[in-house]
Design a binder for these strands. Structure first.
Lengths: 245, 245
DNA sequence: CAGTGGTCTAGACCACTTA
DNA sequence: AAGTGGTCTAGACCACTGA
């Protein structure tokens, strides 16, 4: 531990104290003021120094452990986790993935229509058969190069417009409408491209494609989105981090 | 809420009280005594009924929320999460996956040798170049049908023997040695099978394969295992659940 | 407005690590 | 033996939901 981390707390803020503390420490880790493996101040000292109780301090540290940013060992202290075990984004978003890797993501909306939900879609979204849903098909590109062909189905109430989808990722659009996806079930597989798919994605015939099916839910368990996507395996792969419980 | 869940606590047990409570509730959810959407007793009443403090009760409930088994809303109570948003196993294990779906998994150990770590393996395991590691190649089958070809590299100290690997999954073997993988970084992609791969997996030439690279770490951040695996896309896909947050 | 979960406090004792 | 995090208690006040 070099020297105690400077943390400003605002007790009049609606943001919980433990969250302010966690944010401050996470920021310090992310901008390098705390290095991987570095020993942190112990929690009792941190609590008294910040003028908060020990349980509140613990709650902040626990959050960071859950996110994989800190490692704690009884008797041995709290350390910044090795960089390689940090958890990446929680809900995979192609748009964010591409932005972060320095590519310029663009979108062509191929279709945008209100349709009766096919049976498998109605099941996934937990709606009565033939309910109306918005169906969207998009071609996603990075630096002008096709990356993925995405088909999504959304409840009519929350579906973004065609224009919104041209400029932002689906999840950004949903957030803008106050919809917060919290849980997603994904199934990732692979298959060979059909002739039409190969043509659209600029791949050779029967090229290997990554496939992903996803159903997303908000915190109350309401289905928010169902998608069937195919990715060029030559240009894209899924990076995920798992924590054992 | 039908009627308060019967929970037996053992205060002399080394298992923490909050863990006993969480286990009891999770068991009730899993065997159907609590149904999806069902309202639970509120935490104050549960605390007094079980003779434990409210923070301890909260800790139990928080664990279950983190695992996706419960959904809580201020003012509205605690409910069992819809079945479809339950988190599956945390660290993907082919062996467990197959067992649960009623298949009989078997393993052929094709190679088992101590070798100098290739550069990319040394990097993944965070070891000096050319360190000795145990390399294992296995063919995994379900009901006698080939499913996956797996290549793993492990530090010599913890590597299971050939015999152990014939009868159990890798992660079971590691647990048996007291090694607890807690975090894994995975990269999932796809490509076409080589002639040799197609032959071993009983697939047509150039069939689409799922690929997975994984590095697993224990709680202290020590690398435990690095693997490069290929799966028959026609027989296998990855199911995962993500939590935002 | 009654009831719920969310936040926070100020202590206590214990198990484990390190030296 | 000293220091650390892990567990647990018994309260308090607040924000939000729903009838």
């Amino acid at each position: 531990m070099s020297q105690p981390l400077r943390i400003e707390l605002d007790r009049s803020s609606p943001i919980p104290l433990y969250h302010q503390v966690a944010q401050a420490i996470q920021a310090a880790i992310e901008d390098g003021r705390l290095s991987p493996g570095e020993l942190l101040e112990n929690e009792i000292s941190m609590a008294t120094r910040l003028g908060i109780s020990r349980p509140t301090t613990r709650q902040a540290l626990r959050k960071l452990v859950d996110k994989g940013h800190l490692v704690r060992r009884r008797g041995a202290g709290t350390r910044v986790a090795p960089a390689r075990i940090r958890r990446p984004l929680d809900l995979t978003s192609l748009f964010d993935d591409l932005s972060k890797s320095g590519k310029a993501p663009t979108t062509q909306v191929l279709e945008h229509a209100t349709v009766a939900a096919p049976p498998e879609v109605a099941t996934a979204l937990d709606m009565p058969a033939d309910s109306e849903v918005v169906m969207v098909r998009r071609l996603r590109l990075a630096d002008g190069e096709p990356i993925a062909l995405m088909t999504n189905y959304l409840p009519v109430g929350i579906a973004p417009t065609r224009d919104e989808l041209e400029s932002d990722g689906l999840y950004d659009c949903l957030r803008g409408r106050g919809v917060k996806p919290r849980i997603a079930n994904q199934r990732i597989g692979a298959r060979s491209a059909s002739a039409a798919e190969a043509r659209m994605l600029d791949e050779p015939p029967r090229a290997a494609l990554l496939t992903m099916e996803r159903t997303a839910f908000d915190e109350a368990g309401n289905a928010v989105e169902f998608g069937q996507h195919i990715y060029r395996a030559s240009r894209y792969s899924f990076d995920t981090t798992f924590f054992a419980g």
